[in-house]
């Protein structure tokens, strides 16, 4: 039977994992810092889980409350900068995205990461009215994962072309691109009918075209530029320079055989 390859995650995987190996976990610390405690208190019920992981306070919230939570963080806790918004794809395992907002308090030099889970197909409320930096960040999130942000002023693809199909950072999207990606330019410029004429993109830098006499020539079978050799070519005797008088074909190393 052929080996089954999962289609829901086509990213790089370890080819071997010890069956007894259990991955350790980065310790999640209880919130002890005074400032962080105040943050958790200010948010109250809306925080589902709070812990400190590597200097960052991580707050798990409900995806519907993202706007209210960030508003409280901005207005009462002093988190005036939203330095990053992005998502993690957990569609294969849990059927949802994890969206995180990386917040920064400039006065206290503290960082909070607000994390929420969003089911596939749902949209999240845009935080552009609070943080203008979310404008580009949410557009990138939409471009890369297809997560829509409601009430975003201009939700449009940002890094990929506007007419692109698929969202590149999904786990189902292969690194080399899908079929659409490989024919994108051909389809767009010439039309799908030209796929056969133009042929697939050559991604092998060392590829040799056997019958292409424009760019390649065969030792011992040289022909003039752009000759049609599909019917075979005639052997040309190799002429060696008379000054050196070296005929490699007579030595132990046969040029013909090495070819």
């Amino acid at each position: 039977m052929r080996k089954y390859t999962p289609k829901d995650n086509v990213q790089g995987k370890a080819y071997y994992t010890d069956r007894f190996w259990v991955a350790p976990r980065v310790p999640r610390q209880v919130v002890e810092d005074e400032h962080f405690k105040a943050v958790v208190e200010a948010l109250g019920e809306r925080v589902k889980e709070a812990y400190v992981e590597i200097n960052n306070l991580v707050l798990h919230i409900d995806a519907t409350q993202n706007y209210a939570v960030l508003e409280t963080l901005k207005d009462t806790c002093g988190y005036k900068v939203c330095s990053e918004i992005s998502a993690v794809d957990y569609l294969a395992k849990e059927g949802e995205f994890e969206i995180f907002y990386q917040m920064l308090n400039l006065d206290k030099a503290k960082r909070v990461r607000v994390v929420c889970r969003l089911k596939k197909g749902l949209a999240i409320e845009s935080v552009v009215p609070l943080f203008k930096s979310a404008n580009f960040a949410e557009r990138e999130m939409y471009d890369m994962f297809g997560i829509k942000a409601n009430n975003h002023p201009f939700l449009k693809r940002i890094l990929m072309p506007d007419d692109w199909e698929g969202h590149p950072l999904l786990k189902t999207y292969p690194l080399q691109g899908d079929e659409f990606a490989s024919w994108y330019e051909v389809d767009k410029i010439f039309g799908k009918a030209y796929r056969d004429i133009i042929g697939p993109e050559n991604r092998d830098p060392a590829r040799i075209e056997r019958y292409d006499t424009k760019r390649f020539s065969r030792v011992g079978y040289e022909v003039s530029f752009d000759t049609d050799i599909s019917g075979g070519e005639t052997k040309t005797e190799i002429e060696y320079s008379s000054t050196f008088l070296t005929d490699y074909n007579t030595g132990t190393k046969q040029l013909d055989k090495r070819k």
């Binding site: 790089g12 976990r25 980065v26 992981e53 590597i54 960052n56 330095s83 990053e84 990386q102 920064l104």
Partner: peptide, 27 residues
């Protein structure tokens, strides 16, 4: 180990940070 990290550094252009989510895999 499994876990996530966000580390900011001051690059010449500004705050350059890497967020890494690890599931305990080599990738």
């Amino acid at each position: 180990p499994k876990g996530e990290v966000y580390v900011p550094t001051e690059s010449p252009k500004g705050e350059l940070g890497f967020y890494i989510k690890s599931e305990g895999e080599p990738y």
